[in-house]
Design a protein around this nucleic acid. Structure first.
Lengths: 254, 254
DNA sequence: GAGTGGTCTAGACCACGAC
DNA sequence: TCGTGGTCTAGACCACTCG
């Protein structure tokens, strides 16, 4: 019978050790040799069992090193829509505030600033035709030198051209400061965010650049910012590893 | 070199066929035999490559059947905090409304209603000591007879005892109707939800009961409902497969 | 250098689906 | 019945880490 496959039983035994706490995060798993002997089978079969656990995110392994129970990451960010403004009024992004609160050193690294044709999902949200030229700012957020998320910001050309948004430099006070700063006589104000989340496994390049271990999913988050006129002024396209983030949303019912 | 492993190259070739659209969802993948011949290797190595793609959620397979590119699920729910009340005032849950809008047949199946000790995460949110007895209502939501999510509702004993919440029957108008119905002279009103999301791979039992294919992550959502007095009146603990749901949250900035 | 995990070969038998 | 994928054996060599 399929469900009683030996490699599944091996996986199940170790899984229950982990879930019951008999094996703690960071503990070494039994070696493949030991398991092969214990279950009177070959290393190949043992490896299939361990592969299952890796794909579930319970084990991590590496050439030459003993496999171990996946350690909890030392930082866990809380991504919350609830308090954007509070932080920003203090001149700080949500990301930085959360990291520093936990006693870590946040960093935002700018990968690219330039003009690109708008991807369809972005164009849709910005209310422009797909393929129209937009400004993109690609960044990676890090904590203690470990990458935490990829974050691409998209802006309409008419809004960003000639502003710091189009410059390949970090922006003091953040992108929202620029958007809300008065241009001529108008003063924009961001009053609403809409976040669309999708769950999936990371692509190869994503897993590489974010150091996502096997068996850890990511969220793809598209966040659109609207001003008081109902106009979309920014679309953020983020890839967020599931082992380093928890999400919290507060919904007020009218 | 590790990255050039043959099974990885095989996976990469097929992956790019899928991502480029040369292989469409539902299309059969090449058979293991064919691939072994093409790459002049053994079936075992081919299988390692295909296993990679399965763990990424790109392929599905089954004994005796040809592997195929994972078809998009025929229903995709939009889980949104934005319009709970609108639907409920129409006497319909968010879930049912969304499914019917897409022309499908929703169903909520009650698995269990009973008293249990409150899990710590639930107790925390309900503002009671962990382990205190609470009422739980375990349900599975289905669309067209396919399971879509697991959803356990927890209620304080003092609130649920003697009400339909403690009865093993479906509740006309939903649980919120009961919570908001007047008891004595007070009339509760739910005014806020707080949703905590976590991303991970499904456990074995979860994958089984939700028919989650390999390589598809789940969200674990804890939703707490508060009344106008700031009291937590319900905690919902849901497991939601990533291939059948998209999440949308609207955040208003004061 | 000893031990570990990563890769691969060359077979075998089984369970299941489609024809 | 035939082809498919699922499981397993019994070896081998390599790359890497650690003491």
């Amino acid at each position: 019978m399929v469900k009683d496959a030996l490699h599944r039983r091996i996986a199940e035994a170790i899984r229950s050790d982990i879930l019951a706490g008999r094996l703690q995060p960071g503990d070494p798993a039994p070696s493949e040799h030991e398991l092969a002997e214990k279950y009177e089978t070959t290393r190949n079969t043992v490896r299939k069992g361990l592969a299952l656990l890796k794909s579930e995110g319970l084990l991590v392994s590496g050439q030459g090193r003993r496999s171990m129970v996946r350690p909890r990451p030392n930082v866990r960010m809380l991504s919350t829509g609830a308090n954007h403004r509070a932080h920003r009024d203090a001149g700080m992004s949500n990301f930085n505030a959360e990291a520093e609160k936990q006693g870590h050193r946040p960093e935002q690294r700018l990968l690219q600033v330039g003009e690109v044709p708008a991807p369809s999902e972005v164009a849709e949200r910005l209310g422009i035709p797909a393929g129209e030229t937009v400004i993109v700012r690609r960044r990676v957020f890090l904590v203690d030198d470990e990458p935490m998320q990829l974050c691409d910001g998209y802006y309409r050309l008419s809004l960003a051209e000639g502003t710091p948004l189009a410059e390949p430099r970090r922006i003091r006070g953040g992108a929202h400061g620029v958007i809300e700063s008065p241009t001529g006589t108008v003063r924009r104000r961001i009053v609403q965010f809409v976040e669309d989340l999708e769950l999936r496994m990371p692509t190869g390049p994503e897993a590489d650049s974010l150091h996502v271990p096997t068996g850890v999913p990511v969220a793809r988050v598209l966040r659109t910012a609207y001003d008081s006129a109902g106009e979309a002024v920014e679309v953020l396209d983020s890839i967020i590893p599931g082992d380093r983030y928890a999400f919290r949303y507060v919904i007020d019912v009218p």
